[in-house]
Design a protein around this nucleic acid. Structure first.
Lengths: 243, 243
DNA sequence: TAGTGGTCTAGACCACTTT
DNA sequence: AAGTGGTCTAGACCACTAC
């Protein structure tokens, strides 16, 4: 058999290996959100590759929004500032007027055995536990949606003892547990308001609501949050850009 | 005044100029969808820049899904095959089972003066005309949604004389009018089925429906299609990935 | 002025496809 | 074997920021 005619299956570009190594160091906590990475030249020396190869890795991570590069300043670990949450992770817009960061009011924080949907979304079994956070969210003074967040107890240890859950939970995950949310997958349906919706959202039973089922993934593509939201869309809409 | 301290406002990277030039030639019809572009080396010679600069331009256009690059074969103008439509431009999925390209049944094709929403979406005024295509769409044998497409009469001349509108309208736009859809923006709401929905979708008045208002843009970022869809989501969902 | 990322070039070599 | 895109390197220079 002529070896030269074979396909080289084991091939893995150097810049992808570099990206993985930088991701590993990031996950291990070498650089905190908001801090600067070493310069391209320095990383290249550290890793024993050329500066152009480091650049390709950093560019890929910038495209994934894990890093932020600023010409003349440096390369930084992305933070969960409100503007980023608003633009990257939140697709609900008011039909008219200014966009505001949603205010949250927590109704309940509890621990439970995961139900079927939580198990499937988070890859858990019946022996696991989840935290459940029920909350309402407001756009300004307008009640917008109600939702329940489900979080694996194994990852978010001690969550139940928190006195207050902030509006910006992704920043909390990052600061308290080192969990970096990088990708989100959402499934939408139109549903009818039930009795619970009526009680919490103050709308008649039967009102059409937008139901959003979200799974959030971390740096290692591990599911870390499952969320079910039910949203009134008479004055809001969900925006989606297909590129 | 020290010139060296000023910011260089007029700066425009060469690879962006190259991208624009290639986009211009693409829009002018030099290469049809599915055909191969000249090699990087050849384009570099034509345009008087280095091969690396051409590569950067082609990579950017590939990221925009205008081009498709295949190692060992060449760089091709993206086509509107069904798989691309399904993955890039169509976000509705069955809750279970296989995804199918939606079958369309045209109910009506007419010409009209644009209403307020059409004027705003397509940037038209009261003196313009639009084509309106009303149709039903099926996933297999399952009726999924009803929708109306609105198209500027000035762009899609002669559309009214067509005997049949194919399922894949973006391929039609491309083949017949040289209109290349590259980006789509959608706004979603949950609404209640009205009398017209009942009649066409065969569902009770009051059923929650997912309403999708879509604007499609061409190579020059010009709006070329406005679409309002109303979809039953008891067995389907709308998928959205936030990255 | 020094340091950072961004652009541009040139060339070598690799992986993949086609002939 | 020839031709394509993909990777990797090295170096020069540009644009931007901070000091």
């Amino acid at each position: 058999m002529d070896v030269s005619a074979e396909t080289n299956l084991g091939f893995r570009p150097l810049y992808l290996q570099v990206r993985e190594e930088i991701t590993r160091q990031l996950a291990s906590g070498r650089w905190q959100p908001g801090t600067m990475l070493p310069s391209e030249q320095e990383l290249a020396r550290e890793l024993g590759v050329s500066q152009g190869t480091v650049r390709k890795a950093l560019d890929a991570m910038t495209a994934e929004r894990i890093l932020v590069r600023r010409q003349g300043r440096g390369t930084f670990v992305a933070e969960y500032e409100e503007s980023r949450i608003l633009f990257q992770f939140f697709r609900l817009y008011p039909d008219s007027g200014e966009r505001l960061f949603p205010i949250s009011k927590v109704l309940k924080l509890s621990s439970a055995t995961p139900n079927a949907r939580e198990r499937e979304a988070l890859g858990l079994d019946e022996t696991a536990t989840v935290w459940r956070i029920s909350r309402l969210r407001y756009h300004g003074s307008e009640l917008m949606l109600r939702e329940t967040l489900s979080l694996p107890g194994s990852i978010f240890q001690g969550l139940g003892e928190m006195e207050e859950i902030p509006n910006n939970v992704y920043r909390l995950y990052s600061q308290r547990w080192g969990v970096t949310v990088t990708r989100i997958s959402e499934k939408l349906k139109a549903v009818s308001a039930d009795e619970a919706d009526r009680a919490e959202l103050n709308c008649p039973v039967g009102t059409p609501l937008l139901e959003i089922r979200r799974i959030a993934f971390d740096l290692h593509k591990r599911p870390v949050e499952y969320r079910e939201s039910r949203c009134q869309t008479d004055a809001m809409h969900y925006a989606s850009d297909l590129i």
